[in-house]
Design a protein around this nucleic acid. Structure first.
Lengths: 355, 355
DNA sequence: CTGAAAGCGCTAACAA
DNA sequence: TTGTTAGCGCTTTCAG
C-alpha cells in the first residue's frame, strides 16, 4: 500500500457551549435529569415520547436533549428492555467459498436485506464466518445476546449445523435450497426447477452433451445440476460436471482449463452462476468458438452483468429482491412467535442471445 | 412474490438434558455460578480465561458452560466494560444515489472491510442511511453507544456534515476524496490524478473531444472530472460533462441517451465508473461505433467485470483491498487515541483494449 | 403526572 | 485464589 499521508487540517477548539460555561458534559439520562430538575425516570419517559408525561415537561426535556446533543445509550437501553433491535446476518464461507463474501449474488441480497431491515427499524450486524475454523459459528451468534434474530445467507456445506440450531431457536431464516422435511425455515429459488429450465432450453436448441460448470458440494448447485440431469436423461442428452469453484481467483482459471481441455466434448454449457458463465463466454470467444452456434451457454442468477455481455447472456433468474423481502417478513413473524413455513420461489428463464 | 409455501418438518422435542431432569435453564452467569458452587465473579473470571483463577475451577466451569451451551450476554458485558467490540459501517445514500448500496464498488469495499474487521476481532454493524431524510444520520450512529468507532463508505454530498462530526469524534475513518485542509480522516484514491491519467491516455490516443459520463455532485467524481479537464486544457482538448447518475435503473437509460443524442460530438468517453463504462461500451456496440477506433473509452475502478468485457475495458484502478486494510488500521489507531493522518492512494492506469 | 427503587447480566475493585 | 460489593445507563413497576 503505497500512499501519501496527508496531515489533517487544524482542529479548532469546539466553540464554548454557551457564553463561557465549562461545557457541561451531558452524557447520561441522569445528567439531563439534573439539568431539567426532574428525575431520571421522567427523562426516560419524556424521551420515549411516552404517554403520561406533562406535555410541557416533555417538550422541555426534548429540547434540552437536542440542545446538548444527548443520545440514549442503546447498549443500556437494550439490556434493560431485553431486546436489541438488531438482526444478525451471517455469511458462512464453507467448502470452497473462501473470500466469497464479495460474491455478487450474496452481496446484492445483502444490500436488499439491509434496505428491508432498515425500513422495519432494525439494525444489521454482519458477520462473515469460516465454519471449518469455527465449528460453533451459528450458536455463538445466536447466543450472543447481541441480536434478536438471525438471517443466514447461503447454506454452504453447513446444512446439518443449521438444522440443529433451528431446533432450539425460532427467529432464524436462511437463504438457500429447500429439502423435503427440513426443519429450518428457508427462502430460496427452486434450484432443481431452474436446472430443468436450463437443460430444456439447451436441448431444445439442439444440445446433446451438456457441461455443468459448478461445484456440487454446495447444495444449491447440486440441485441445479440434478434438475438438468433429470431432464437430460429423459430427453436423451447428457450432463457432465466439470468442477468449478466460486472463489474469484480460481474460478477464471478453472473455466479456462475446462474449455481448453474439454471444449470439444460439449455442445452446451450450463454454468452454475452468471459469474462462471461470464468467464466461460470470454474463454469461448478467445478460442473463436461461436456462441450459441457451436456452443450454447446458459447462466444462473440474472445478475445485472448478464444483460451487458456480448452476446447477452441467457440465464435463469432468481428473484433476489422478492427473496430479501420474504426473508425479512418471515423473520419478523417468527420474532413474534409465529412458526412460519419455508418459501420456494420460482426461477424464470430469461432468453437472451447465448442459448 | 409468487412462491410455494412449504410446511416445516416435524420438530422433535429437544432431548431431555440429562436423565429426565427438567432442563435447568442456565442463562446467566449466576445460574452457572450456582451450578458450579462458586460466585458469579469467579465464573466471570473463569470464562474470561483470566489469570488468577485456580486451573481446576476454571476447567470445571468452562466445561459446565460448554455442557449447558451457556454464552455470555454480550449486551450486559459490553455495557459494563464500556466497549462494544462493534464497528459501525455507514453508507450514506446522498444526492442521486438511491438504492446504491448495491453499487459494486462499495459492496466490494464492504466485503473487504468485513474481512479485516473480523480478523481484528470486531463485529460490523451496517447501516444504510438517506441523509436527506435523516439529517442526523451520523451523530445518531456515533452517539448510539452501539459502536466503538465508525467507518463511512463514501462522502456522497455530505462532506460538511462529516467534517462537523469529526470535530467531536476521533474514531472515525471515511472512504472518499481528500480536500486540502479537511478535518476528517479519509482514505481514498487520488481521484484528480486518476482523471489526469485517463485524459492523458485518451489524448495520447488521438482524442480531442472527451465526454465525461458521471455526476459531478459527488465529490469524488468532481475530482476525476477536474483532473481530466486540467490535462485537456493543457493539451488542447476539451472535456464536457454529460450528467450520468449511478442508480442502476437510470444509469443505463441516461448513457443510451447520451450516446444517441451526442454520440457524434465526441471521440472519447471518460466514464466516472466501470459500471457506467460497461453501459457505454454496450451502447456504442449496438450503434456500430467501433471502440477504440472511432471512440476511445476508459473507465474507473477496475472492477472484476472490466477484464471480462469485449473488448476488455481500459480503466483506472483503485486499490480496494489496500484501502480497506488502511481504513481498519487507521481506525484501530484512532481507537487507541492516536490522531492519524489521511491516506491518499495512487490510482493506476490499467491498459486493456478500449483506449 | 412524577419520584424512588429495583434491577437487566455482567465486570472489576476491594477484601478476605 | 475466591467472594462481596458496587455499579455500567437505562426502564419500569410501585407509590405518592
Amino acid at each position: 500500500m503505497l500512499g501519501t499521508a496527508v496531515a489533517p487540517g487544524l482542529r479548532p477548539d469546539m466553540a464554548a457551549d454557551e457564553e463561557n460555561a465549562p461545557a457541561a458534559p451531558v452524557r447520561t439520562i441522569t445528567d439531563l435529569a439534573r439539568l431539567a430538575g426532574v428525575s431520571a425516570g421522567t427523562v426516560s419517559r419524556a424521551l420515549a415520547g411516552n404517554s403520561l408525561v406533562n406535555d410541557q415537561t416533555r417538550e422541555r426535556i426534548q429540547a434540552l436533549a437536542r440542545e446538548h446533543g444527548f443520545r440514549l445509550n442503546q447498549m443500556a437501553s437494550r439490556l434493560r428492555r431485553q431486546k436489541t433491535g438488531v438482526i444478525g446476518v451471517v455469511i458462512p464461507l464453507g467448502h470452497d467459498r473462501r473470500q466469497q463474501i464479495s460474491d455478487t449474488f450474496f452481496m446484492t441480497l445483502l444490500g436488499f436485506l439491509a434496505d428491508e431491515l432498515t425500513e422495519k427499524g432494525y439494525d444489521l450486524m454482519l458477520r462473515r464466518v469460516i465454519p471449518d475454523r469455527d465449528k460453533d459459528w451459528l450458536d455463538r451468534f445466536i447466543g450472543s445476546g447481541m441480536v434478536d434474530g438471525v438471517l443466514v445467507i447461503g447454506q454452504s456445506d453447513q446444512f446439518e449445523r443449521i438444522e440443529e440450531a433451528a431446533d432450539g431457536y425460532l427467529p432464524m431464516v436462511v437463504w438457500g435450497n429447500h429439502q423435503e422435511g427440513q426443519r429450518h425455515c428457508v427462502v430460496g429459488t427452486d434450484n432443481r426447477l431452474g436446472g430443468k429450465l436450463a437443460a430444456e432450453r439447451l436441448i431444445a436448441g439442439g444440445a446433446r452433451r451438456i457441461a455443468f460448470l459448478g461445484d456440487t458440494a454446495a447444495i444449491e448447485f447440486a440441485a441445479r445440476h440434478a434438475g438438468a440431469a433429470e431432464v437430460a436423461a429423459r430427453l436423451g442428452a447428457t450432463v457432465e460436471v466439470l468442477p468449478t469453484h466460486l472463489a474469484p481467483d480460481s474460478s477464471a482459471a478453472e473455466v479456462a482449463d475446462h474449455v481448453a481441455v474439454r471444449g470439444q466434448d460439449f455442445d452446451a454449457i450450463f454454468a452454475a452462476s452468471d459469474a462462471i458463465a461470464v468467464y466461460a463466454l470470454r474463454e469461448l470467444g478467445k478460442r473463436g468458438i461461436r456462441v450459441p452456434d457451436q456452443v450454447r451457454l446458459i447462466g444462473f442468477d440474472d445478475l445485472p452483468i448478464a444483460a451487458q455481455t456480448v452476446p447477452a447472456l441467457t440465464t435463469i433468474r432468481q428473484d433476489i429482491l422478492g427473496g430479501a423481502k420474504a426473508m425479512v417478513d418471515l423473520l419478523l413473524r417468527r420474532l413474534a412467535g409465529e412458526e412460519t413455513e419455508s418459501l420456494v420461489l420460482p426461477p424464470r428463464l430469461i432468453l437472451r442471445d447465448t442459448a
